[in-house]
């Protein structure tokens, strides 16, 4: 049975707004499962899922694992280090071998843009992109949308600014597409050396200064500044980055309205975001993490062919 999302979830760019709303709506009933003392429903009982993480990840991998386990799937984790990948096995061979063991789904995190699509085109199993290079990280984009919707309601016309290293960020791309699909206004703000040269062609506003972004936005999604960007010479120093582009309490206090602060994690406190902002009243960062499990449950459920209108029932115990 073809799912409402198709075979795979590779990115948000080519999803329809209806599909995105469907995932967000399906996540709603799944939120409650994680609040129970027995956090388990049998929706994916008998399904085998491989979490194929070629890049290090803590939050995303654990979040997927919880989502899978809470839906009663059988899961296996494969990481690049200590596996056949380290022995030089190619991605396509790794995938074919896994599939030969008759699996149902693969969750893949890989450092190469396009790796998830590459895999999806070569195996029968459903593929979920858990982050491919600097391309997309669709479940992160979805959990950000869910968190924004929880706090702002309907996102049509809401203003969200993505701050920081958009050039190297898969989170940024998934956010831009996801937000545009649901009708939000999207802006980016960061040093031009960390924005794609063609950024305006995404149909987003560009703010040169963080103060302008704060004055404009209903929410800021603050990206992690990876330290290797400094050594690669994109910006002079993390100290200067904080001074010019950092989200500080002082800057937020000048905002004309309450601004939500999101961050995909892990944070560099004192670089892109100050601690009193991360821990302060505007921050919904931990709410994002909680929503991450529900979003991933919804995606797993829908890709497995689960019918959205039955999500509420699935939650009750029937497969």
């Amino acid at each position: 049975m073809t799912s409402a999302l198709g075979k795979d979830l590779l990115g948000l760019e080519f999803l329809s707004s209806e599909q995105i709303r469907l995932i967000l709506d399906t996540a709603e009933p799944f939120k409650e499962i994680s609040e129970r003392s027995i956090k388990k429903v049998p929706a994916l009982r008998g399904s085998t899922i491989v979490n194929l993480f070629f890049e290090n990840s803590t939050r995303t991998r654990i979040s997927f694992e919880f989502a899978e386990k809470r839906l009663s799937a059988d899961t296996v984790n494969v990481s690049a280090s200590g596996s056949s990948v380290q022995k030089g096995e190619t991605l396509v061979d790794t995938a074919r071998n896994l599939e030969a063991m008759r699996i149902d789904m693969v969750v893949i995190r890989h450092s190469a843009s396009g790796a998830a699509q590459f895999l999806a085109e070569r195996i029968e199993s459903n593929v979920i992109n858990a982050g491919d290079g600097t391309h997309e990280h669709p479940t992160q984009g979805l959990l950000d949308l869910l968190t924004l919707r929880d706090h702002l309601g309907d996102l049509t016309g809401k203003r969200v600014c993505i701050c920081g290293d958009v050039l190297h960020s898969r989170v940024a791309r998934s956010n831009i597409w996801g937000l545009k699909h649901v009708g939000a206004e999207v802006a980016v703000c960061g040093p031009r050396s960390l924005l794609p040269n063609a950024i305006e062609e995404f149909g987003v506003t560009v703010f040169e200064r963080i103060e302008e972004a704060i004055e404009w936005a209903d929410a800021l999604n603050v990206l992690r500044l990876q330290l290797e960007r400094m050594t690669a010479g994109y910006i002079p120093s993390s100290r200067e980055y904080n001074r010019v582009f950092g989200v500080s309490r002082e800057r937020l206090e000048r905002a004309p309205r309450d601004i939500l602060i999101l961050h995909p994690g892990p944070m560099n406190r004192g670089v892109e975001i100050d601690s009193d902002v991360a821990d302060g009243p505007h921050s919904v960062i931990l709410h994002q993490v909680t929503n991450g499990v529900a979003i991933r449950m919804a995606v797993l459920y829908l890709l497995a062919g689960g019918r959205p209108e039955l999500a509420e029932a699935a939650k009750g115990g029937r497969p």
């Binding site: 760019e13 843009s113 396009g114 491919d132 290079g133 600097t134 391309h135 997309e136 898969r170 791309r173 794609p196 040269n197 063609a198 950024i199 062609e201 995404f202």
Partner: peptide, 15 residues
């Protein structure tokens, strides 16, 4: 090539 397609695909472009 560096441009909108490379930016969308998350591939490093050659200007």
């Amino acid at each position: 090539n560096e441009g909108i397609v490379s930016a969308r695909l998350g591939l490093k472009g050659i200007p």
